[in-house]
Nucleic acid binder design. Structure first.
Length: 304
DNA sequence: GTCTTAATAT
DNA sequence: AATATTAAGA
Protein backbone atom coordinates (compact mmCIF):
# COMPACT_ATOMS: atom_id res chain seq x y z
CA UNK A 1 0.00 0.00 0.00
CA UNK A 2 2.91 2.28 -0.26
CA UNK A 3 3.06 4.64 -3.08
CA UNK A 4 6.00 6.35 -4.31
CA UNK A 5 6.44 9.78 -3.15
CA UNK A 6 9.30 11.59 -4.61
CA UNK A 7 7.74 14.93 -4.16
CA UNK A 8 7.77 14.88 -0.51
CA UNK A 9 9.80 17.96 -0.40
CA UNK A 10 7.26 19.82 -2.38
CA UNK A 11 4.67 19.04 0.12
CA UNK A 12 7.15 19.79 2.74
CA UNK A 13 7.68 23.28 1.54
CA UNK A 14 4.04 23.84 1.25
CA UNK A 15 3.59 22.92 4.78
CA UNK A 16 5.97 25.46 6.04
CA UNK A 17 4.09 27.82 8.18
CA UNK A 18 4.22 31.40 7.20
CA UNK A 19 5.21 34.01 9.68
CA UNK A 20 1.72 35.26 9.94
CA UNK A 21 0.80 31.83 10.75
CA UNK A 22 2.72 31.75 13.85
CA UNK A 23 1.51 33.52 16.80
CA UNK A 24 4.43 34.44 18.92
CA UNK A 25 2.74 34.47 22.14
CA UNK A 26 5.01 35.04 24.99
CA UNK A 27 3.93 33.69 28.17
CA UNK A 28 5.51 33.12 31.43
CA UNK A 29 5.34 29.73 32.74
CA UNK A 30 2.53 29.68 35.07
CA UNK A 31 1.90 26.66 37.03
CA UNK A 32 0.06 24.06 35.10
CA UNK A 33 -2.71 23.99 37.54
CA UNK A 34 -3.13 27.64 37.15
CA UNK A 35 -3.05 27.41 33.43
CA UNK A 36 -5.54 24.67 33.39
CA UNK A 37 -7.70 26.24 35.96
CA UNK A 38 -7.98 29.34 33.92
CA UNK A 39 -7.66 27.61 30.72
CA UNK A 40 -6.88 30.35 28.48
CA UNK A 41 -8.10 30.40 25.01
CA UNK A 42 -6.17 31.36 22.00
CA UNK A 43 -6.89 34.37 19.87
CA UNK A 44 -7.06 32.41 16.67
CA UNK A 45 -5.04 32.29 13.57
CA UNK A 46 -5.67 33.70 10.22
CA UNK A 47 -6.22 31.75 7.09
CA UNK A 48 -3.04 30.27 5.81
CA UNK A 49 -1.59 32.18 2.93
CA UNK A 50 0.13 30.23 0.20
CA UNK A 51 3.75 29.36 0.73
CA UNK A 52 5.62 32.49 -0.08
CA UNK A 53 9.18 32.35 -1.20
CA UNK A 54 11.72 33.46 1.30
CA UNK A 55 11.95 37.17 1.66
CA UNK A 56 8.57 37.78 2.99
CA UNK A 57 8.88 39.90 5.95
CA UNK A 58 6.59 39.70 8.80
CA UNK A 59 5.78 41.74 11.74
CA UNK A 60 3.82 39.28 13.63
CA UNK A 61 5.33 40.13 16.90
CA UNK A 62 2.76 42.79 17.32
CA UNK A 63 0.33 41.05 19.46
CA UNK A 64 1.79 39.81 22.58
CA UNK A 65 -0.22 38.35 25.21
CA UNK A 66 -1.34 40.96 27.54
CA UNK A 67 -0.98 38.42 30.20
CA UNK A 68 2.66 38.04 30.59
CA UNK A 69 4.94 38.84 27.82
CA UNK A 70 8.25 39.19 29.41
CA UNK A 71 9.51 35.81 29.93
CA UNK A 72 9.84 35.43 26.26
CA UNK A 73 13.51 35.82 25.99
CA UNK A 74 15.81 35.22 28.76
CA UNK A 75 15.56 32.83 31.49
CA UNK A 76 13.14 30.17 32.05
CA UNK A 77 10.65 31.13 34.53
CA UNK A 78 8.48 28.91 36.41
CA UNK A 79 6.20 31.12 38.21
CA UNK A 80 5.10 34.55 37.38
CA UNK A 81 6.49 35.98 40.50
CA UNK A 82 10.06 34.86 40.71
CA UNK A 83 12.37 34.97 37.78
CA UNK A 84 15.43 33.19 38.90
CA UNK A 85 14.35 29.69 38.53
CA UNK A 86 16.30 27.92 35.95
CA UNK A 87 18.85 26.42 38.14
CA UNK A 88 17.85 23.56 40.23
CA UNK A 89 14.39 23.51 38.88
CA UNK A 90 13.28 20.68 36.83
CA UNK A 91 12.13 21.47 33.44
CA UNK A 92 8.90 19.97 32.41
CA UNK A 93 9.12 17.21 29.94
CA UNK A 94 9.27 18.38 26.43
CA UNK A 95 6.56 17.22 24.15
CA UNK A 96 7.70 16.59 20.66
CA UNK A 97 4.82 17.67 18.60
CA UNK A 98 4.76 16.98 14.90
CA UNK A 99 5.60 20.58 14.25
CA UNK A 100 8.53 20.55 16.53
CA UNK A 101 9.71 17.32 15.09
CA UNK A 102 9.45 18.78 11.66
CA UNK A 103 11.69 21.54 12.73
CA UNK A 104 14.10 19.01 13.96
CA UNK A 105 14.06 17.14 10.70
CA UNK A 106 14.49 20.33 8.76
CA UNK A 107 17.44 21.24 10.85
CA UNK A 108 19.08 17.91 10.38
CA UNK A 109 18.43 17.99 6.70
CA UNK A 110 19.93 21.37 6.30
CA UNK A 111 22.86 20.83 8.45
CA UNK A 112 23.86 17.88 6.47
CA UNK A 113 24.46 14.62 8.05
CA UNK A 114 27.89 15.41 9.25
CA UNK A 115 27.02 18.43 11.21
CA UNK A 116 23.84 17.13 12.52
CA UNK A 117 24.80 16.62 16.07
CA UNK A 118 22.74 17.58 19.02
CA UNK A 119 24.33 20.89 19.67
CA UNK A 120 24.16 22.17 16.15
CA UNK A 121 20.73 20.84 15.62
CA UNK A 122 19.62 22.58 18.68
CA UNK A 123 21.14 25.80 17.53
CA UNK A 124 19.60 25.62 14.16
CA UNK A 125 16.25 24.88 15.51
CA UNK A 126 16.50 27.90 17.69
CA UNK A 127 13.67 27.02 19.85
CA UNK A 128 13.93 28.83 23.03
CA UNK A 129 13.99 26.51 25.91
CA UNK A 130 15.07 23.57 23.90
CA UNK A 131 18.13 21.95 25.35
CA UNK A 132 20.87 19.92 23.88
CA UNK A 133 19.72 16.99 25.87
CA UNK A 134 16.25 17.32 24.52
CA UNK A 135 17.66 17.10 21.06
CA UNK A 136 20.11 14.37 21.86
CA UNK A 137 17.42 12.25 23.27
CA UNK A 138 15.17 12.82 20.36
CA UNK A 139 17.94 12.26 17.92
CA UNK A 140 18.74 8.97 19.47
CA UNK A 141 15.24 7.84 19.12
CA UNK A 142 14.97 9.16 15.65
CA UNK A 143 18.00 7.24 14.57
CA UNK A 144 16.57 4.09 15.91
CA UNK A 145 13.49 4.82 13.96
CA UNK A 146 15.44 5.25 10.78
CA UNK A 147 17.32 2.10 11.40
CA UNK A 148 14.15 0.23 11.91
CA UNK A 149 12.96 1.67 8.74
CA UNK A 150 15.80 0.27 6.80
CA UNK A 151 15.01 -3.12 8.02
CA UNK A 152 11.73 -2.96 6.27
CA UNK A 153 11.89 -3.17 2.58
CA UNK A 154 8.43 -4.08 1.77
CA UNK A 155 5.39 -5.34 3.38
CA UNK A 156 5.21 -4.41 6.93
CA UNK A 157 4.47 -1.06 8.09
CA UNK A 158 3.76 -0.74 11.66
CA UNK A 159 1.10 1.83 11.60
CA UNK A 160 0.57 2.25 15.22
CA UNK A 161 4.17 2.77 16.03
CA UNK A 162 6.17 5.87 15.44
CA UNK A 163 3.34 8.17 14.85
CA UNK A 164 5.41 11.14 15.57
CA UNK A 165 8.20 10.25 13.26
CA UNK A 166 5.81 9.34 10.57
CA UNK A 167 4.40 12.78 10.76
CA UNK A 168 7.36 14.25 8.99
CA UNK A 169 8.73 13.00 5.75
CA UNK A 170 12.14 11.51 6.00
CA UNK A 171 14.50 13.27 3.67
CA UNK A 172 15.94 10.91 1.17
CA UNK A 173 19.49 11.62 2.14
CA UNK A 174 18.81 10.28 5.52
CA UNK A 175 18.30 6.97 3.96
CA UNK A 176 20.60 6.98 1.08
CA UNK A 177 23.47 9.21 1.71
CA UNK A 178 24.84 8.86 -1.73
CA UNK A 179 23.07 11.93 -2.70
CA UNK A 180 24.29 15.17 -1.57
CA UNK A 181 21.64 17.56 -0.61
CA UNK A 182 23.78 20.61 -0.83
CA UNK A 183 23.83 20.97 -4.54
CA UNK A 184 20.30 20.03 -5.11
CA UNK A 185 16.91 20.92 -4.34
CA UNK A 186 15.23 22.56 -1.59
CA UNK A 187 16.13 24.55 1.23
CA UNK A 188 13.05 25.13 3.09
CA UNK A 189 12.09 28.66 3.12
CA UNK A 190 12.99 30.07 6.39
CA UNK A 191 12.72 28.85 9.76
CA UNK A 192 10.30 30.81 11.61
CA UNK A 193 11.05 31.77 15.06
CA UNK A 194 9.17 29.50 16.98
CA UNK A 195 6.76 28.79 18.83
CA UNK A 196 4.74 27.64 21.54
CA UNK A 197 1.46 28.37 22.57
CA UNK A 198 -1.40 27.33 24.48
CA UNK A 199 -3.10 26.43 21.34
CA UNK A 200 -0.84 23.60 21.47
CA UNK A 201 -1.65 22.80 24.93
CA UNK A 202 -5.25 22.71 24.06
CA UNK A 203 -4.68 20.66 21.01
CA UNK A 204 -2.80 18.20 23.01
CA UNK A 205 -5.45 18.12 25.60
CA UNK A 206 -8.14 17.62 23.07
CA UNK A 207 -6.21 14.97 21.33
CA UNK A 208 -5.69 13.19 24.55
CA UNK A 209 -9.32 13.43 25.34
CA UNK A 210 -10.24 12.17 21.94
CA UNK A 211 -7.87 9.32 22.24
CA UNK A 212 -9.28 8.46 25.55
CA UNK A 213 -12.76 8.63 24.18
CA UNK A 214 -13.53 11.36 26.51
CA UNK A 215 -15.60 14.30 25.94
CA UNK A 216 -13.53 17.36 25.36
CA UNK A 217 -14.05 20.42 27.43
CA UNK A 218 -16.83 22.60 26.18
CA UNK A 219 -14.69 25.46 25.13
CA UNK A 220 -13.11 23.58 22.32
CA UNK A 221 -14.41 23.78 18.88
CA UNK A 222 -14.95 21.03 16.50
CA UNK A 223 -12.31 22.19 14.17
CA UNK A 224 -9.79 22.00 16.87
CA UNK A 225 -10.81 18.58 17.75
CA UNK A 226 -10.57 17.46 14.21
CA UNK A 227 -7.18 18.98 13.84
CA UNK A 228 -5.94 17.54 17.03
CA UNK A 229 -7.22 14.16 16.21
CA UNK A 230 -5.76 14.36 12.81
CA UNK A 231 -2.21 14.95 13.66
CA UNK A 232 -0.45 11.81 14.15
CA UNK A 233 -2.85 9.69 12.32
CA UNK A 234 -1.24 9.95 9.02
CA UNK A 235 -0.13 13.18 7.48
CA UNK A 236 2.49 11.49 5.53
CA UNK A 237 1.61 9.00 3.01
CA UNK A 238 4.17 7.16 1.13
CA UNK A 239 7.42 8.41 2.17
CA UNK A 240 9.52 5.38 1.73
CA UNK A 241 9.23 3.22 -1.20
CA UNK A 242 11.77 1.92 -3.54
CA UNK A 243 14.45 3.62 -1.68
CA UNK A 244 15.74 0.65 0.07
CA UNK A 245 15.46 -1.94 -2.56
CA UNK A 246 19.02 -3.02 -2.23
CA UNK A 247 18.82 -3.69 1.38
CA UNK A 248 21.40 -1.53 2.93
CA UNK A 249 22.87 1.77 2.35
CA UNK A 250 25.58 3.71 3.72
CA UNK A 251 24.28 4.68 7.02
CA UNK A 252 26.25 7.80 7.36
CA UNK A 253 23.72 9.33 9.52
CA UNK A 254 22.75 6.35 11.46
CA UNK A 255 26.13 5.08 12.29
CA UNK A 256 28.19 8.09 12.53
CA UNK A 257 31.76 8.25 11.52
CA UNK A 258 34.49 9.57 13.69
CA UNK A 259 33.90 12.85 15.27
CA UNK A 260 34.71 15.90 13.45
CA UNK A 261 35.26 19.32 14.77
CA UNK A 262 32.15 21.23 15.00
CA UNK A 263 31.87 24.54 13.50
CA UNK A 264 29.73 27.39 14.26
CA UNK A 265 26.33 27.07 13.02
CA UNK A 266 24.85 30.04 11.53
CA UNK A 267 21.30 30.04 12.35
CA UNK A 268 19.36 30.38 9.26
CA UNK A 269 16.40 30.74 11.34
CA UNK A 270 14.57 33.79 10.50
CA UNK A 271 17.36 36.20 10.81
CA UNK A 272 15.32 39.27 10.67
CA UNK A 273 11.82 38.46 11.34
CA UNK A 274 11.49 39.46 14.85
CA UNK A 275 13.02 38.76 18.10
CA UNK A 276 13.13 35.18 19.00
CA UNK A 277 10.32 34.38 21.16
CA UNK A 278 10.39 31.42 23.30
CA UNK A 279 7.46 30.42 25.16
CA UNK A 280 6.46 27.38 26.80
CA UNK A 281 3.35 26.25 28.24
CA UNK A 282 3.09 23.73 30.81
CA UNK A 283 0.63 21.10 30.30
CA UNK A 284 -0.70 18.44 32.41
CA UNK A 285 -1.01 15.09 31.06
CA UNK A 286 -4.48 14.17 31.79
CA UNK A 287 -6.85 11.42 31.05
CA UNK A 288 -4.39 8.89 32.13
CA UNK A 289 -3.12 7.21 35.14
CA UNK A 290 -0.21 9.43 35.07
CA UNK A 291 -0.46 11.35 38.16
CA UNK A 292 -0.46 14.70 36.53
CA UNK A 293 2.91 14.91 35.06
CA UNK A 294 4.09 18.25 33.91
CA UNK A 295 5.24 18.63 30.42
CA UNK A 296 6.83 21.28 28.39
CA UNK A 297 5.08 21.88 25.20
CA UNK A 298 6.62 23.76 22.41
CA UNK A 299 4.44 24.30 19.52
CA UNK A 300 4.31 26.59 16.62
CA UNK A 301 0.96 26.58 15.12
CA UNK A 302 -1.68 25.05 13.11
CA UNK A 303 -1.92 22.02 11.15
CA UNK A 304 -3.95 21.49 8.07
C1' DG B 1 33.98 18.86 26.26
C1' DT B 2 30.86 16.78 22.98
C1' DC B 3 28.89 12.67 20.67
C1' DT B 4 26.89 7.93 20.60
C1' DT B 5 24.82 4.12 22.45
C1' DA B 6 22.68 1.31 25.79
C1' DA B 7 20.49 0.94 29.95
C1' DT B 8 17.64 2.65 33.16
C1' DA B 9 14.55 5.97 35.44
C1' DT B 10 10.41 8.81 35.69
C1' DA C 1 4.57 5.34 26.10
C1' DA C 2 7.41 9.13 25.64
C1' DT C 3 11.06 11.58 27.32
C1' DA C 4 15.00 12.17 30.61
C1' DT C 5 19.07 10.82 32.76
C1' DT C 6 23.13 8.31 33.35
C1' DA C 7 27.17 5.49 32.22
C1' DA C 8 30.83 4.23 29.37
C1' DG C 9 33.60 4.47 25.49
C1' DA C 10 35.39 7.15 21.44
Amino acid sequence: MREDDTDWFTRWEEELPSPEDLIPLSQSLISPDLALAFNIHLPNNQPPPPPPPPSSQANSSAEFAADSADLGSGATTTTGAGDEPARTLKRPRLVWTPQLHKRFVDAVAHLGIKNAVPKTIMQLMSVDGLTRENVASHLQKYRLYLKRMQGLSSGGSDPAADRLFASSPVPAHFLHPNRVPSSDHFMPAAFVPVVTLQQQQQMAAVAAAAAAHLQPPPQFHHRQIAAAAHFGSQTTNGQFSSVMASGKFDQSFLARQPQLPQQTVQRMATPLLHSPVGNYVEDLESANANGGRTVLTLFPTRDD
